[in-house]
Amino acid sequence: MGYTTCPNGHLYDPEQYASCPHCNGGSNMIDFTGGGYPQGTIAPGSFGGDYPQGTVAPNGFGGGGVQNEKIMGTHADPSAGFNPDEVNKTVAPSDYSGGPSKTIAVFEAEQGFVPVVGWLVCTEGNKEEKGKSFNLLSKRNKIGRDRESDVRITGDNAISGYNASIAFDEEECSFTLIPSDTANNVRINGKAVYVPTTIVAYDEIRLGVTHLVFVPFCSERFSWGKKAEDKV
């Protein structure tokens, strides 16, 4: 009497199940309390009662050792990933079709696409970035070192993960730079800014040691919204 494995590598007790319960959709829990069941899983050759007693922590397990010291790995807070009240499914990346719906910009919602409305051109800074242009889209564009940034500046450690954003307002055809709540200042034409500030063509934005010149595409001469209306 003992466990067996099915062709898919699942362990089960053939005396409890005529066929592998896990191959039937995994909806069954093997009943380890069934009659005639030996103590413990039957190991190859030596499973059973000869194994040593399970280890017991002194005084049982308090919260201290487990919470503060013993949980290693990437959890900054051991309980950060644990919330029984949350829907805890593994979630696919958000660009999966059919995946979780994501917030989209108003322009995209109305017109079905997110166009370029301007650019930032790097005129000073890390040699890999100097000379490059970054598209600004018809939404709030995050600027920083984070991978998720819309305008990602690498090689300048004086820039925060999320240092600032530039928002485009289609109705007013205006661009606003919004500094984030970070220790690193943002300067427009050499002057530090701490509140949302309107920017105009050829304003120089400085983040860390990186200089970016703002060049708008949408202006009095061109508007995506007007373009879309023409087609209606």
Binding site: F61, G81, P84, N88
Partner: peptide, 24 residues
Amino acid sequence: SDGVANVLPPERIVEALESPSVDE
């Protein structure tokens, strides 16, 4: 899978793993 670890806090996992047998 996270269906276990995101439901059972570490203390409960430790308590279970202190059982005398893997089946338990």
